[in-house]
Design a protein around this nucleic acid. Structure first.
Lengths: 196, 196
DNA sequence: ATCGAAGGTGAATAAGCCTTCATCTTAGCC
DNA sequence: GGCTAAGATGAAGGCTTATTCACCTTCGAT
């Protein structure tokens, strides 16, 4: 009995294991995790990785895509809070804090944020509308617009600026309290200048 | 006729060329510049690099040390301005702007800032007092102390925090105006909270 | 139970680097 | 001019990784 698109069950199981191992290793080691390492953790041979993903790049992309989906739900959650009546500036701040939190435990997530940074200009409307990256960009964009409308963040801020700021937040290489202060400072700096 | 410590003139000339080439390549490519590349730009063979520097690490360290010296004069300049009567908070802001400016044109300089980040805790008093890294740390530390005394920056900020912030400033991969806004935001965020 | 094809294996290949070293050059002294 | 040790050379060695592929294994329909 075949599954899905006529793919054997063991193949699907292996694919899942590979993705799981890749997620774990990329999370702690970053994108320099080796194919050998990933294969070993997945309990398969390297060749199997290549049956499922044409190149390392594609495997990493799959992992990053996964993180991007998490990013999308984080950003959409923040936007939902605003729709429910929360001040957009505060929600944006919360979003920063949540993102920073994940950075500390998941380097793959940070990589994903880097992609956001790179692609925000090009992909916001070009990409398929349902893409995780497009959803993230859309939600942040709307959050930003509302916060600016409410006068809670500086009017000159762009979506790309936010992506850069998000990508600049340090990960686990910086101690927790220092990281928290970093985020505090950025959030405070987002407010409009006192004397415009 | 020998120069300096009994070193042949051609050897000294080559050493200078190597350092110059390494500076240029590390500035634009980052620390991943290859030894082959550096040798070619210097007009020597790779073996010559190894006569002057035991390992790539040492060559890179020499380049970084050079950038660290620039960092030291920048920080000491900012401190001097304060001694001359400038508000310490403003000087600190200026320092950030100047550093960001150099990042854009010199990746080696940014690497150097990363080392500052790592070493700030350990080396501030441990290193030989005259070291560029120690001078930088000392000047920033004093700048911070004065700014806090004047109530111009948040009291909970530490030297390590500033190092992290400095290291987080983006380089040339981010357009000039976005970079400027980044720095603006950080500087604004350095101010004490309105309601402590 | 059998069989064909999808799937898995892992040694071998390839490419990119850093580093070494036997050998050749040359600066600087007589 | 000749000598010699410091200096320069760059092919070769060695290491790390991604990627391939000829050859087994196993699933799953019959």
């Amino acid at each position: 009995m075949l599954h899905d698109g006529g793919v054997r069950v063991d193949a699907q199981r292996n694919r899942a294991r590979i993705l799981e191992a890749a997620r774990a290793l990329v999370a702690e080691t970053g994108v320099d995790a080796t194919m050998e390492d990933i294969a070993r953790h997945a309990g398969v041979a390297v060749g199997t990785l290549y049956r499922h993903f044409p190149a390392k790049e594609d495997l990493v992309a799959a992992v990053v895509e996964d993180s991007l989906a998490q990013m999308a739900s984080l950003t959409e959650g923040a936007l939902a809070a605003v729709h429910a009546g929360a001040p957009p500036g505060v929600s944006l701040g919360e979003l920063f804090r949540e993102v920073a939190e994940r950075y500390a435990s998941d380097r793959a997530f940070k990589s994903a944020a880097g992609h956001l940074d790179v692609d925000v200009d090009s992909e916001i409307e070009a990409a398929a509308p349902g893409t995780a990256i497009a959803r993230s960009a859309l939600a942040i964009s709307e959050l930003l617009r509302r916060a600016q409308l409410a006068g809670e963040v500086r009017a000159d801020l762009t979506l790309a600026d936010l992506a850069v700021l998000l990508a600049a937040v340090p990960g686990a290489e910086v101690p927790r309290d220092s990281r928290a202060r970093f985020v505090d400072i950025v959030i405070a700096g987002l407010a409009p200048a006192l004397h415009p």
